[in-house]
C-alpha cells in the first residue's frame, strides 16, 4: 500500500467537499438546526401518555365502569371510551395502539403485536391494573388482532403509498431538473423559442405518467399479498394519488427552480422530507401528537394524503368524503407550481 496515494485521494476528496458550500451547509448547518429543533420538541419533559381505548357496550355509562376508572386513574395512559365499532375504527387508524375490554378482575387486551406502540401500551396497561390491586397481579387475557384492516400492515401500506408519492416528487421532479441544469441542457433549451411554461408542463407530463401506475402497483401488492382491504372507491383512490402526486411534484419543482448544484437541491429536499417521514403519519399515527408537533403534523401535505388514502382503503370512503383534503392539496400544488414557475431559472 502506497500511503502517499491514500493521502492524496483523501486530500482531493476533502477539498472537493469543502469547496462545495452547499455540501458544507447541509452537512454541518442543517443537522445542527435539526438537533436544536428536535431537542426542543423531544427535550426533557414527562413522556406523553400512551393512547388506548376501553371498549364498552355503552360509552355514556362509562363513568360507572370500574375498569375505566382504574385505567383513567393512571397518568401514563390516555384513555378513550368507545363502543366496539368506534374502537375498531380507532385501532384501524392507529389512533390507539391497544383495546381493553372485560373487567378489572378479568381484563382482556386486544392488539396487533407487530404494531410498534402496542407492546408499550400493553405493558403500561398491565402495570396500571396491577397497581390498582394491592395483591398479586391479575392475569390479562391477550387477543391478537389479525382481522384484515385492523393490522399494522393495513395501516402501513397506505402510508407507504404516500411516502412513494413524496419520493417521486422529490427525486423524479426536483433532483432530475437540477441535473439537467448542471449539464447545461436547460440553458441550451432556453435559447430556443421554448417558454418556461411549455417546458415545465411538458416535463411534468413526461414524468407524471410514472407516478400513478407506481401507486397502483403498491396498492395491488398490499391487497393481493397481505390481504389489505380496499373498502372505498377506486376512483377516489386514483384522485388522491393524482392530486397528491401533483402536490409533491409541485414541491419538487419549486425546490429545484433555482438550485445550481445537486448537493443544494438534495439538501432542500431533505429539509422537506425529514419532517414528513417523521410526522406525516407513515409509520405511526400522528393524531396522538400534542402541541406544536401536532400543528406541524397537520401542516404537512403528506399527513392529509395518508389520511385520505386510509379513508378510501381501510374505510368505505368516497370521493365526497375526501373532497376537502383534495381541494387543499390541489391548492398547495397550484401554489408550488405558480411560485416555481416564477422563480424558475434556466441556468
Amino acid at each position: 500500500m502506497n500511503p502517499r496515494a491514500v493521502w492524496a485521494v483523501a486530500k482531493a476528496q476533502f477539498r472537493e467537499f469543502w469547496r462545495t458550500p452547499e455540501a458544507v451547509f447541509w452537512t454541518y448547518g442543517f443537522p445542527l438546526v435539526m438537533t436544536v429543533v428536535l431537542g426542543f420538541a423531544f427535550g426533557p419533559k414527562p413522556p406523553d401518555p400512551v393512547p388506548i381505548a376501553v371498549v364498552v357496550a355503552d360509552p355514556a355509562a362509562a363513568d360507572s365502569d370500574p375498569l375505566v376508572a382504574v385505567l383513567r386513574h393512571d397518568a401514563r395512559l390516555s384513555v378513550e371510551v368507545l363502543d366496539a365499532a368506534a374502537a375498531d375504527r380507532a385501532l384501524v387508524r392507529g389512533r390507539v395502539g391497544l383495546l381493553v375490554h372485560g373487567s378489572v378482575a378479568e381484563p382482556v387486551v386486544r392488539a396487533d403485536p407487530t404494531r410498534p406502540e402496542a407492546q408499550l401500551a400493553g405493558l403500561v396497561v398491565a402495570r396500571a391494573l396491577r397497581d390498582a390491586r394491592d395483591g398479586p397481579g391479575v392475569a390479562i387475557a391477550q387477543e391478537v388482532e389479525d382481522r384484515p384492516g385492523s393490522r399494522y400492515i393495513d395501516f402501513l401500506v397506505p402510508g407507504l403509498i404516500g411516502l412513494n408519492l413524496l419520493g417521486a416528487g422529490m427525486w423524479g421532479f426536483g433532483f432530475n431538473l437540477v441535473q439537467m441544469r448542471t449539464q447545461n441542457l436547460l440553458r441550451r433549451l432556453s435559447v430556443t423559442p421554448l417558454t418556461r411554461g411549455e417546458f415545465l408542463l411538458g416535463y411534468l407530463m413526461g414524468r407524471f405518467v410514472l407516478v400513478i401506475p407506481e401507486a397502483i402497483v403498491i396498492a395491488l401488492f398490499g391487497v393481493l399479498l397481505w390481504g389489505v382491504p380496499f373498502r372505498g372507491s377506486w376512483l377516489a383512490f386514483l384522485l388522491v394519488v393524482a392530486v397528491g402526486g401533483f402536490a409533491f411534484a409541485g414541491l419538487g419543482c419549486l425546490l429545484a427552480s433555482r438550485a445550481r448544484t445537486t448537493e443544494g437541491v438534495a439538501g432542500l429536499m431533505n429539509l422537506c422530507q425529514l419532517p414528513m417521514w417523521m410526522l406525516g403519519g407513515v409509520f405511526f399515527a400522528n393524531e396522538n401528537l400534542r402541541g406544536p408537533m401536532r400543528w406541524a403534523a397537520e401542516a404537512l401535505p403528506l399527513t392529509h394524503i395518508n389520511r385520505a388514502l386510509r379513508d378510501v382503503m381501510l374505510e368505505p370512503g368516497s370521493v365526497l368524503d375526501i373532497a376537502v383534503p383534495l381541494a387543499g392539496l390541489g391548492l398547495f400544488a397550484a401554489l408550488c407550481f405558480g411560485l416555481g414557475l416564477r422563480l424558475f431559472r434556466w441556468q
Binding site: Q183, N184, L185, R187, V191, T192, P193
Partner: peptide, 30 residues
Amino acid sequence: RSAIGVCLQETKFHDKQTVRETLELFAALF
C-alpha cells in the same frame, strides 16, 4: 430565438436518447 441557432460551449444532451430522438426534440421547439 426562432431566427438564431446556438451551439453552446458544453451541453450534455440526454444520455439515453438517440441522435434522431434528440433532434426530434429540438425540431419540435421551432
